[in-house]
Design a protein around this nucleic acid. Structure first.
Lengths: 346, 346
DNA sequence: TATTTATGTTCAATCGATTGAACAGTTCTT
DNA sequence: AAGAACTGTTCAATCGATTGAACATAAATA
């Protein structure tokens, strides 16, 4: 029984045509609901197609139509709740519109990112939605995408020189909100575990942080701004460094939740009271920020909203390929989530 | 300058042929290093291809060769560190062998899983590597894959009735190790927050747990075995239930780390000392298990190893499609990681 | 009845690359 | 110098589906 199924050949429109004694083109047109094909024929074709369990060969259609209905998505890490939530929503929206998603990870590596881009272009994707790896400084691979003439949409990690559509949050303003909150809590010396200044989002977070300090008449001390990859170990290392500095801060704002977690671990080891001796805020609202003790204050980036908008922007580009649409730069407001690690008032 | 690039049409082998005054077939053969093409021609073709920035049309090649070089991967959730690590390794191995990976998520939903399978089959993937959603009981979609005659490899979440290759860990033995460890710690009443018995891995964990209890002359109390989806909220709910039961346990073994986390949160709220009053062990070695306080003991499943073996199994199947290979059932030994939540000895 | 119009289907080319067979030209044998 | 043996390239069919033009038949109109 199964053996039979396994050995069953794949059926083509020609097989359907043979059964009915008509031509493949009639079958094709029937399946595509062409107006010049009679209802009777359409019905018969559909019936035979069903009974043979016919599945169109996507490759042939794609070749003929010059369209693969595949969208490539490149994210730095699937492990990150932020990125996987964004992609989840993208997938949903794109599937609804007849596209399938090929998702690849760069692992923050420039080299892997290039490989992924090449693989996606090779696969003839109709467009690419990406978030740039931290390591990346040369954008040649992204220029290659543009030169292919397919839509390229960036989210979260963008680049100003690359003239493409972008969706992200207002990092500058988010940083200001964080600092404002910490000032409200009575913090006077706020350190910033920053991402690398080369990346626009981290640059904006640094800028927002600095400008907010100025706004509240707090001194900007460059020793309190330390750039890193924002991994757990970076958070640990930098926290230790900050604790040993002659001008120990009373608050730490990390541009990423993992770094905040690392920092928290060190603070707990050193028995420093959080938030009273040291307030702590992270960024991204990774689930673990609410699990750990004390729970970590953080910034919520509206993950699915970003995914939805990025997908919709792609669809818009596909549907108006000729019209020289102006660039879409969509900046969402983020939301500060205050938790125990920075809440001195309760 | 860029405008020019953007409008540049995609070049085909015909364009290369025209430049050199030879035929497309000669170009194709030159690019594929056919022995009957002269070195001179090959060199010239490669040079022109480079200068035109020629990229072969994958769809055409795939159509002609009847092979897409795409592997579909279906995982329940990308957010899970276990699954994303597995896929990361798969991607690495498959990329090295000329395959690209299309990764999709089922979100544990039967319906989404079916949709994903259909999308992958439609995309003409050369094979599918999957881990079955918790919700799934009907395997018709998986039978459909088999009936297409392409390799299907399952990992972690498999099914015995589906006769396909499988890679996973020894869940039965892992459970025994956990119970053994808890017994060593002096626990007498060990509860099990279980996954649904319908899924082989959870069934095996339940069996291993029961058999180990018997082995150590501990009573098997069905009230202490509670099946669930193993989400955080499930862990919370079940822990509360266990605490209120007349026969409160002194240890909890959760078949998933999220459930263990939920349980831990309740224990902390109730000020129950972990591990002294209640020892706790989870499953999967999700990163957060080491972050939280106390850190949670858990079982490490050798994520990348599973990914590597699954990918290699797929490659084996592809390379020997005719030979009726016997089924590969690869069962790895898992490793118990003892952390604070169950370590009473320190 | 002749002629237009509508309807239903077939024909043939096409998307881009691949591949075995065929062909032409060169070199080597004897 | 005639045939064998290579070498390098072209020819033509193919993968499966699509699509505008062409054709044939039936129905409607004049």
């Amino acid at each position: 029984m199964y053996k039979n199924l396994v050995n069953k050949k794949k059926y083509t429109i020609k097989d359907i045509a043979d059964v009915l004694g008509i031509t493949p083109s009639a079958v094709s047109k029937a399946l595509n609901d062409h107006p010049r094909i009679s209802k009777k024929t359409k019905g018969a074709v559909i019936e035979v197609a069903k009974s043979l369990n016919y599945q169109p060969n996507y490759l042939a259609t794609a070749l003929r139509k010059g369209k693969s209905n595949l969208v490539g998505v490149i994210i730095p890490r699937a492990k990150s709740n932020f990125f996987s939530s964004v992609v989840e929503k993208m997938e949903e929206v794109l599937n609804e519109n007849g596209y399938n998603v090929i998702m690849t990870q760069s692992n923050e590596s420039y080299e892997k990112e290039c490989r992924n881009i090449n693989a996606l272009l090779f696969t003839q994707v109709d467009g690419i939605i990406a978030s740039i790896a931290n390591e990346t400084t040369k954008l040649d691979a992204y220029h290659k995408i543009k030169s292919r003439g397919i839509p390229l949409i960036l989210f979260d990690r963008g680049d100003n020189n690359l003239e493409v559509d972008y969706v992200g949050i207002d990092d500058y303003k988010s940083s200001q909100m964080v600092v404002e909150h910490l000032v409200d809590q009575g913090c006077k010396r706020i350190a910033h575990i920053a991402g690398f200044n080369q990346s626009p989002i981290y640059r904006n977070r640094i800028l927002g942080y600095k400008d907010a300090l100025v706004k509240y008449n707090l001194p900007v001390d460059d020793n309190l701004i330390i750039e890193s990859n924002l991994r757990i170990t970076d958070g640990q290392r930098i926290m230790k460094q900050l604790l040993n500095s002659p001008t120990r801060p009373d608050a730490v704002y990390a541009a990423g939740d993992l770094a905040a977690l690392g920092a928290l671990q060190v603070l707990k080891e050193e028995n420093i009271k959080v938030p009273d001796e040291m307030a702590l805020v992270g960024f991204s609202n990774e689930p673990f920020t609410s699990f750990v003790t004390p729970s970590i204050s953080t910034v919520n980036q509206h993950n699915s909203e970003i995914g939805r908008i990025a997908a919709e922007t792609f669809l818009k580009r596909m549907n108006h390929p000729l019209k020289e649409m102006t660039l879409n730069k969509i900046i969402l407001e983020a939301e500060l989530i205050v938790r125990d690690s920075s809440n001195r008032l309760t």
